[in-house]
Design a protein around this nucleic acid. Structure first.
Length: 846
RNA sequence: GCACCCAUAGCUCAGUUGGUCAGAGCAUCUCGUUUACACCGAGAGGGUCAGAGGUUCGAGUCCUCUUGGGUGCACCA
């Protein structure tokens, strides 16, 4: 009888208890006393590329080449083989979604595999404050949840607002961490870091200062992307282009007709440009034309950037509100300060006739069109154009000229500023002096220092890097790491003539601090005399520190210092996430007393696994900043997963109602079923199709595993030679092997070999399918059925039982990375009956 | 506009240097109430691997073109 093992696996009963057991027993922490780790092994023991060819059937040894991404042998500074991964820190602003389940599954498979293999293994978890994203989520919550908003009523200072969002974030962070536990993430919680931890911020500040000292960070007024809803600038990555049905308007400016999709920007015009080779306009170059509605006189200039084929061949130039116009304006030394819009996208300012003031968007356009049509100066044609929009609110981006902090991506570092780094890893030579961040990023991949598991992403990565533009890292929001730049009163006097007024900002009504607004965002060039700026800049400069507040301006000695109100683009700090947490956590190993930081032991990390949608946002920045800061690329392999889709290949969205809630799935079918469903049949980089049927099928598989073990365990009781099983380590006597025995043993060996190879080559779906096939069909359907008869034969029974037991043990070990809970649950049943010696499967590496 | 990827059973997808590769899961049909499991078992049907050409002794697997679908990048106002 086996009445103590229930016939159906009950995931609810086991999962949280097992997780607790693992965590209590420090199973997730790197184990320095692990015997395998203590003795550095030769690469050939586990580098598939160097596997003994005799072990591989059919002389296929050489097939393990080329596209195989077998993890190369690497040792830490201690000479230990290690496997390390820094978890992509989930945004601490909501619950986990199915995408998180994907990364946990894939990363946990690798981590559990390497841990069981005996490698010194670290998976370092974290949480991301996710600046802009979180502030947007928080704002929405204020808008939609009256009771929540009520508590925040009244004027909140910047500091109060920051604290409000911090409390919101920390609550989410705890929730999120518990959800990661439910997914089975075997990460080392004792090392968990938050992107706003003091020691992390300090490193981010140091990097900023280094970049500034190296000449790679600069402040400049340039045309940037302004979101009129969120009241902040955005990087080029944070905008997307949407095709919109629109109209192309042709407006008669005297003798020249210009073509535009945005007639309302005409008040910002400073010139009309034509192509120098265009015969139609040649005679007009150098003359002027009169603009309708304003009767302003505009010079006609020539520039090759103007496309003769497009529209009328004549382009109105609005440097303050258009990228191309900005470039042309700069080239021709035109006035760059003719703004037509305020921060909310409303028409206004000196250049706009009063009757148009405060009109916005469609309204503004309609008024301008109507007036021009009345004058008979406008014609329109249908036109589909691509509009830049905010990736969050999808509102049209307003290009504006504003002073911001930028990181120069293509400029070479100043080598004379380089010096040995605090962490002892970056000698001046290894700091790649004289190279640009762009070059560092390209070289890391082209040289093979960083390898993409999926080639197509390597191409996409390189294509993006080769066309890089400078990165605006200033954000006009509260929630984030404040930029460590201070301005003295003299500097400000020259710069702050145009400031976001408190009145303006308070109109947002979003509960977000109004103190931001009282600080200067910097100059709007239209009110700064350029000669004066130049003169001032010779004397007083922004003061950049590694975080500490300066006492006085080193140039003029003023103690009246104002900190820049802006915060960093979150990706600037998360771009440092591969090394920053490792620099702040400790290895706690006796031999590491002197140099005990995890950084020495675990950097560079082995794999970076994340979604392909943040290839540029994150992966590219980590490579560049990691190379820059440490001299080494931050990881060896990049594994990018795709988007999760439903069974009809539809993207998941709340409006479609096809969102799969991972926590709900775990409740119903178990974490193992969810995890297996997320890898089964999914190859690297491709989108992940999941359906309830698939999850259900995997739940059935976990039950199959449970019952296989139940069968084997229960047969121990009926076995005559029970004591022999428990006391002998012998596996089988080959003389007594039946054909069925031979087949299962051979298949087991094949399975083990190919599963290991597949995991090391990131072919998790192959490994999962191989295991599914072997365990269910080869072992359960065929061998177990045969074994029922063999167990009754007194000559064969003992041998058969050993084979059964051994097959179960090996199967559990191989399957554990994929389905950690049911395998460990079964293992514990076996521990209780002394059928296995290792106390926990998770750390079993025999 | 430029670039990249994909097109294999009803559905969703695997298929690793070209040679048992024509596969899996789900679905469908038939049979089975065998004490590990009905969250089960035994068996069956179903694809000229988008189309055309080429390289090769041999091609879903490499090359070219066509068609269809997807994605990334982009200052055509």
């Amino acid at each position: 009888m086996h009445d103590d093992i229930v016939p159906a696996y009950d995931h609810l009963k086991h999962e949280s208890a097992l997780y607790l057991m693992w965590e209590k027993n420090h199973a997730f922490q790197p184990n320095f006393s692990n015997s395998k780790s203590q003795t550095p092994r030769l690469p050939s023991t586990w580098h598939v590329g160097q596997v003994n060819s005799k072990q591989i059937p059919n002389n296929k040894a050489q097939s393990l080449k080329r596209d195989d991404h077998s993890l190369e042998f690497r040792t830490s500074s201690l000479g230990l083989p290690y496997f390390s991964m820094v978890m992509p820190p989930p945004n601490a602003n909501g619950s986990l979604h199915i995408g998180h389940a994907v990364f946990v599954t894939l990363e946990d498979i690798m981590v559990r595999y390497h841990r069981m293999k005996g490698d010194l293994t670290l998976w370092l978890p974290g949480a991301d404050h996710a600046g802009f994203e979180t502030q947007v989520v928080y704002q929405k919550k204020l808008e939609k949840d009256p009771s929540f908003a009520k508590a925040k009523e009244g004027k909140r200072s910047r500091e109060e607002t920051f604290q409000d969002i911090l409390a919101f974030t920390l609550a989410n962070k705890e929730n999120m961490e518990n959800q990661l536990r439910r997914l089975g993430a075997s990460c080392d919680w004792t090392r968990a870091k938050f992107t706003l931890d003091d020691d992390i911020i300090k490193i981010v500040y140091q990097t900023f200062k280094e970049l500034y000292d190296d000449g790679l960070v600069y402040r400049d007024s340039k045309i940037i992307n302004w979101c009129t809803k969120h009241q902040t600038t955005l990087s080029d990555l944070e905008i997307t282009h949407e095709d919109r049905a629109s109209e192309l308007y042709e407006i008669k400016y005297d003798d020249i007709t210009v073509a535009t999709t945005r007639p309302e920007t005409m008040f910002g015009d400073v010139a009309v440009a034509v192509n120098p080779a265009d015969k139609r306009f040649k005679h007009l170059i150098g003359t002027t034309v009169i603009q309708p509605l304003t009767n302003r006189e505009l010079p006609v200039i020539a520039d090759e950037l103007v496309d003769r084929e497009f529209g009328t061949g004549a382009l109105k130039i609005t440097p303050a509100h258009d990228g191309t116009d900005y470039d042309i304006g700069k080239k021709h030394s035109l006035a760059m300060d003719h703004t037509a819009f305020d921060f909310f996208g409303k028409l206004g300012g000196n250049w706009v006739p009063i009757k148009y003031h405060n009109l916005k968007g469609e309204e503004a356009r309609k008024k301008v069109i109507d007036d021009l049509e009345k004058l008979g100066l406008l014609t329109r044609k249908p036109y589909k154009n691509s509009v830049a929009v905010c990736y969050k609110c999808h509102k049209t981006i307003e290009p504006m000229v504003l002073p911001q902090w930028f990181i120069a991506m293509t400029k070479k570092t100043k080598s004379e500023k380089l010096k040995a780094k605090n962490y002892g890893v970056a000698s001046p030579q290894s700091r790649n002096e004289g190279k640009s961040l762009q070059e560092l990023g390209i070289e890391a991949v082209k040289s093979g220092e960083v390898k993409f598991v999926t080639k197509k992403f390597e191409k996409i990565y390189l294509h993006w890097l080769e066309n890089l533009r400078d990165w605006n890292i200033s954000r006009q929001i509260v929630w984030g790491i404040r930029i460590p730049a201070w301005y003295c009163e003299n500097y400000l006097k020259s710069q702050m003539s145009n400031v976001k007024s408190a009145d303006e900002k308070s109109k947002i009504g979003d509960g977000i601090s109004s103190e931001v607004a009282t600080c200067p965002v910097g100059p709007r060039q239209n009110e700064v005399d350029s000669s004066e700026v130049e003169e001032e800049q010779k004397t007083c400069q922004p003061i950049i520190t590694a975080g500490e507040t300066p006492d006085k301006c080193p140039t003029c000695g003023s103690t009246q210092l104002t900190q820049d109100p802006d915060v960093f683009d979150t990706w600037f700090s998360s771009g440092q996430w591969t090394f920053a947490p490792l620099m702040t956590t400790n290895s706690n190993h006796p031999e590491l007393k002197e140099r005990s930081r995890d950084f020495e032991t675990f950097y560079p990390t082995t794999v970076m696994e994340t979604g392909h949608d943040i290839l540029f946002f994150w992966v590219a920045r980590m490579i560049m900043l990691g190379k820059y800061k440490t001299g080494k690329a931050p990881f060896k392999y990049v594994y990018l997963h795709g988007l999760v889709r439903d069974k009809d290949r539809q993207k998941m969205s709340k409006s479609k109602g096809n969102v799969v809630d991972p926590l709900g799935v775990i409740d119903q079918y178990g974490a193992d079923a969810l995890r297996m469903a997320l890898v089964f049949g999914v190859s690297a980089g491709n989108d992940i199709v999941i359906s309830e049927e698939k999850i259900k099928g995997m739940r059935n598989f976990s039950n199959k595993v449970w019952n296989i073990a139940r069968f084997v365990i229960s047969n121990l009781e009926t076995l005559n030679s029970k004591s022999e099983v428990l006391n002998k380590s012998q596996i089988q006597n080959s003389k007594l092997q039946t054909d069925a025995d031979k087949v299962i043993l051979q298949k087991l060996e094949q399975t083990e070999k190919s599963v290991k190879k597949d995991i090391e080559n990131f072919r998790f779906h192959e490994a999962a399918q191989t295991l599914y096939q072997f365990i269910w069909h080869d072992f359960a359907d065929i061998y177990i059925e045969v074994s029922k008869k063999q167990l009754e034969d007194k000559d064969l029974s003992l041998n058969t039982y050993f084979i059964l037991l051994n097959t179960v043990k090996v199967s559990l070990k191989l399957l554990h990375p994929f389905m950690p809970f049911v395998t460990e649950a079964v293992w514990q049943e076996m521990v209780a009956r002394k059928l296995v010696s290792d106390k926990m499967l998770i750390t079993s590496n025999s």
